[in-house]
Design a binder for these strands. Structure first.
Lengths: 154, 154
DNA sequence: ACGTTATAGTTACAAATGAAACTAATTGCA
DNA sequence: TGCAATTAGTTTCATTTGTAACTATAACGT
């Protein structure tokens, strides 16, 4: 009987995936490359993780959110948000108080220190985005927006 | 003096990022959603991680690679590959021998058992890709390919 | 040939992440 | 009212991952 641990003789019948043309794989490479480039700008400088930065970014836009609302807006799960908030509050970057009529909920806002970081990091992030988009001409950029809109639609 | 842990009064001068229109964020959401859908197909069934599946996919296409070559082709780092290979060899899905003229290198191939898994998972992965692309019309699909080619170039 | 440097791969340890259990507060409803 | 079910958020524990250090072999330069 054939030993299953031996390398198998290869016929032509297998049809392997070609990763370099496989959409999920290409998206993953691109996403990681871009996110990492941005993260490199602030991780060392501010000791700030990607999840923490995302939490700060939504709190910059929407004031007084609860942790659950932050989770919804960042597409992160509530445990990740809880941990990010613990660090951000500890570092004095986010202010947390208890919601008036509902003691389970927190009311979250950036502190002055949080805003200073935000106002430094946000332009860097936008620059990185611009660098990526600069590889495309105007028409391609429009298609990309449209395609992402469709692929991300609920 | 102002207490830095208090929530800051917000002026109009901050220009927060709009995550829902921010390319890196959208790519990240899309990539995770798609990869997770595929992973759901095989993780439970075969106790196979995403990194292990990627290693199997390249070994299906290229026979007798070394671990370093697998790392190059998967864009994973060598430690991740080493760990994935340890599990795959242990599970009898990959055969590992030592390279003839260079005892540092391994020579990797799928086993018969590995091929059986590959031949089941590869079509499922292709189906998921097709489902994603089905949200786009033919013209959009062509633009997406072209755009990813440009963004991923060197 | 011999010492230095580089390469292939693994191991060890710390940090990040995920799933489930948990606490506390609120809501729904008999 | 009172009790079950839900919701917000945290904690715990196991697994994964990332970085650096390490072992073994090979290549290079003199």
């Amino acid at each position: 009987m054939p030993n299953p641990r031996k390398p198998a003789p290869v016929g032509a019948e297998h049809a392997p995936l070609e990763l370099e043309h496989f959409l999920p794989y290409r998206l993953s490479i691109l996403s990681n490359t871009v996110s990492q480039a941005i993260a490199d700008d602030y991780q060392r400088r501010y000791d700030l993780s990607v999840t923490e930065w995302r939490v700060m970014a939504v709190l910059a836009r929407f004031h007084g959110l609860s942790a659950r609302e932050v989770a919804e807006r960042t597409a992160m799960d509530k445990v990740a948000v809880s941990r990010a908030l613990a660090r951000l509050v500890e570092a004095g970057r986010v202010h947390r108080e208890t919601h008036d009529g509902d003691k389970r909920r927190s009311v979250l806002n950036l502190t002055e220190a949080g805003w200073l970081i935000h106002d430094d990091v946000a332009p860097m992030a936008r620059n990185r985005e611009r660098e990526v988009l600069a590889k495309l001409d105007a028409e391609e950029q429009e298609w990309l927006t449209r395609i992402l809109d469709k692929l991300l639609a609920h």
